[in-house]
């Protein structure tokens, strides 16, 4: 590890700020706050029915590693018959109630609003930065807007998806691993100039 983070405790989020050479940052990351999150799992043998219920409710789930959004909810496929759903401007309890109303009594729903932090990583050098830890091909030909992956970065499990064409990516990182993830991201992005926001002053 470089001197870049020598002063940042390993137990804290890397503080917001500019890291690396001065000038326009090649990579930006911001912590997205105020999102509720939940896991949704289809009961055994009822994935198709669950997808149909959500289609009726205006959220077209796909049983694949894809991110789908209807403006309010974003559903990300994390495994067969399983999705991580995030929602803006809602409490975890409200999201659970909303999903329960659509999914019916049998689907498994679990509030995960406190389990993770969500980071949006963007910028011209975002792909070059992410290539320093992600063993998934992020070339636009292989991984496009709406594609998602659950994988591991620097020993840290993550779920992420490309949320904008530009590109921008949203990362879901377990709360206790967030400091380590941000350390990896910061040292990896620093050569391009890295602007980090939303993580507080440290």
């Amino acid at each position: 590890m470089s001197d870049l983070l020598a002063h940042v405790p390993h137990t804290r989020l890397v503080p917001e700020g500019h890291y690396g050479p001065a000038g326009t940052p090649g990579v930006s990351a911001r912590q997205v706050l105020g999102l509720a999150a939940a896991t949704l799992a289809a009961p055994r043998g009822k994935t198709a029915a669950l997808i149909a219920s959500f289609a009726d409710a205006g959220l077209p789930l796909v049983d694949a590693p894809k991110a789908m959004s209807n403006g309010v909810l974003t559903a990300v496929g994390t495994g067969p018959g399983r999705w991580l759903i995030t929602a803006e401007g809602m409490t975890g309890a409200a999201l659970l109630a909303h999903l329960r109303a659509i999914a019916g009594p049998d689907a498994a729903l679990t509030d995960q609003s406190d389990a993770n932090i969500i980071l949006e990583v963007s910028g011209a050098a975002a792909r070059a930065t992410l290539a320093k830890g992600i063993a998934v091909d992020l070339d636009p030909l292989a991984f496009a807007h709406g594609d998602a992956a659950t994988t591991v970065v620097s020993h840290i499990g993550v779920t992420f998806w490309q949320s904008e064409e530009a590109p921008a990516y949203r990362f879901v990182v377990a709360r206790s691993f967030a400091p380590a993830f941000l350390r990896w991201l910061t040292v990896s992005a620093a050569e391009f100039g890295f602007a980090l926001t939303g993580t507080g002053r440290g």
């Binding site: 694949a64 590693p65 495994g79 998934v136 992956a149």
Partner: peptide, 11 residues
């Protein structure tokens, strides 16, 4: 079959 080609370390 769900995630696509992945590094063996994930398994």
């Amino acid at each position: 079959p769900y995630c696509g080609s992945r590094d063996a370390h994930e398994f």
